[in-house]
Nucleic acid binder design. Structure first.
Length: 497
RNA sequence: GUUCCCUUCGUCUAGCCCGGUCUAGGACACCUCCCUUUCACGGAGGUAACGGGGGUUCGAAUCCCCCAGGGAACGCCA
């Protein structure tokens, strides 16, 4: 498929309008999916599910310098990882495609030219350099950096002639100077006064549309019924309203949601090297926890129960319940929530998710029986906030990763401690494999009686010798899992410290 | 400079539309205690907020006005 069937796309205008809700997420592919974008996508997804409508994913790749196909793939992959796939979009099918704006150029061009014919727009032959210096001058004079109207004075024939002569031009919309207003689901009636914008470009000299033009056109032809997007687009509405009006179209419903800020209260920005979905997933956050957390940024459940499965969020979701003010993305709370999700999982479900992290860190998990791994997991599950934390907790169970931490070494250097461990060793040899808590208790009681130590002085040396650390899971879990042989080996090591 | 949006504990928020039930509720974080001869988990408490000023009203977080602060747009970026 090479050329676009404009006729069929345009003919949809005359066709029946869908009765279902149609929302869209429209990222520009310039990197990984950002958590802010993910949240916008999520809200659209939730609204689509809630209203039993369709979610469209549209790629806004009209900026050919910044947009890449690789980025598009990354974004799509991140969305798939979150299990929030759209109903229509590149690779998803749908009757309103193509879903990449770069592939819809002809529509934009045709429509921009029709604006020319309607005298709602004109050709602008100004070069970028000219415009640049004009804008700078205006700014320096503390005037609004609007277009100065140079090309409005060019006559019809002149304009035509210059275009035919091959001179480069952009198509610039004449901005009517009057009030514009629209209803926003969150913010009520928003009114724009005249003077906010000057004549603006809708079609670049390279034939690509400009954002404000392409959104309006695509939202219209893709039959979008509700636009849920970040409120950084709110002040763009005036231009979009002008374009809509020029075509005589009806506008969809709008909900401009608040932005997500970083801990510094500044807008989260890709340039600041932050927070893509990809990064969070790599760090061991669970998609379901990330989604749950994101949903709570700007939206709140009617009953206050924060941790809940997606389908409950869908049921409870409502545009009316969205918060208008920006929200700071708090990693601490995400961390807590992720830990809650991890703890709520069965070890059976958790194991496959944790395995990749273990493998990456060089644990020889492949040689270990599953039953053993499940028990190890159970012993440390409560300590995990992110999946990657597993690496730091599980080393005591693997012979190859076993080492003494400094504070454990220091403790073992005391003769008191060595005495305890020596007796401990004898008792373990006597009893054989530790199978149960009572086995261990017998051993510990014997050590206590023979050495006369108790409390911390009794228990900590045993812990230090067996695990190489002063803290960690209970010995009654650790010892059966590492076995007598390894236990004795470690004890001997500790005695040499 | 002009225009638009926002403003409740450190953070996420409930309450605001339909003023009294708000001595402002919940969650994260923090602190204390309990559980535990470790760590974590868990349990019980605690500290902590209506940006400021004017109105309206018997009564305002809630309604009105002004101010301040923050954000956004004014681009052939999205």
């Amino acid at each position: 498929m090479t050329s676009l069937d404009i006729k069929s796309i345009l003919s949809k205008e005359a066709g029946p309008h869908p009765t279902e809700t149609r929302v869209r997420f429209a990222p520009s592919p310039t990197g990984y999916l950002h958590v802010g974008g993910a949240r916008t996508h999520l809200f659209n997804w939730l609204y689509a599910r809630k209203t039993k409508g369709k979610l469209i994913l549209r790629v806004e790749d009209t900026d050919q310098v910044r947009s890449t196909r690789e980025s598009e793939e990354m974004v799509l992959k991140d969305i798939a990882s979150l299990d929030l796939n759209p109903d229509e979009g590149p690779g998803f099918g749908g009757d309103y495609g193509p879903y990449r704006q770069s592939e819809r150029q002809e529509i934009f061009q045709m429509l921009a030219v029709s604006l020319l014919a309607k005298k709602k727009a004109y050709r602008c032959f100004c070069t970028e350099e000219e415009l640049d210096s004009k804008a700078k001058a205006a700014k320096a004079a503390n005037k609004p950096p609007h277009y100065d109207g140079t090309c409005t004075h060019i006559s019809e024939e002149q304009s035509q002639k210059r275009a035919e002569a091959g001179e480069k031009f952009s198509i610039r919309m004449t901005a009517p100077q009057k009030d514009y207003h629209f209803e926003d689901a969150l913010r009520g009636t928003v009114t724009f006064k005249p003077g906010m914008v000057g004549d603006f470009v809708v079609l670049r000299s390279n034939g690509m549309p400009v954002y404000n033009f392409s959104v309006v056109v695509d939202d219209y032809f893709m039959r979008i019924t509700h636009v849920i997007r970040g409120d950084d687009h709110l002040s763009n509405m005036i231009r979009q309203l002008m374009i809509t009006e020029a075509f005589g179209w009806k506008i969809p419903k709008f909900a401009h949601i608040s932005m997500i800020l970083g801990m510094d209260k500044k807008k989260l920005s890709k340039r600041e090297g932050a927070s893509s979905v990809h990064d969070y997933l790599n760090a061991g956050f669970l998609p379901e926890a990330l989604i749950n957390f994101l949903a709570l940024l700007g939206w709140s459940p009617s009953d206050g129960k924060e941790i809940r499965p997606l389908d409950e969020i869908v049921n409870d979701f409502d545009l009316e319940r969205l918060n208008k003010s920006p929200a700071v993305f708090d990693d601490e709370k995400l961390l807590w929530m992720n830990g809650e999700y991890i703890r709520a999982m069965s070890t059976e479900d958790l194991l496959p998710r944790v395995l990749p992290f273990l493998e990456k860190s060089g644990y020889n998990v492949a040689t270990k029986p599953k039953e053993w791994l499940l028990k190890v997991l159970a012993a440390v599950q409560g300590n995990l906030k992110v999946l990657a934390d597993i690496n730091a907790h599980v080393d005591i169970f693997f012979d190859t990763k076993f080492t003494f931490e400094q504070d454990a070494k220091t403790m073992m250097q005391a003769s008191e401690a060595k005495k305890v461990v020596q007796v401990f060793r004898q008792e373990i040899e006597k009893i054989g494999e530790i199978q149960s808590e009572s086995d261990l208790q017998k051993v510990q009681t014997a050590v206590k009686e023979q050495t006369g130590t108790k409390g911390k002085n009794l228990f900590m040396p045993m812990r230090a010798a067996v695990t190489g650390k002063l803290h960690g899971p209970e010995l009654k879990f650790v010892m059966p899992l590492i076995g007598q042989k390894e236990t004795l080996r470690r004890i001997d090591l500790s005695l040499d410290l």
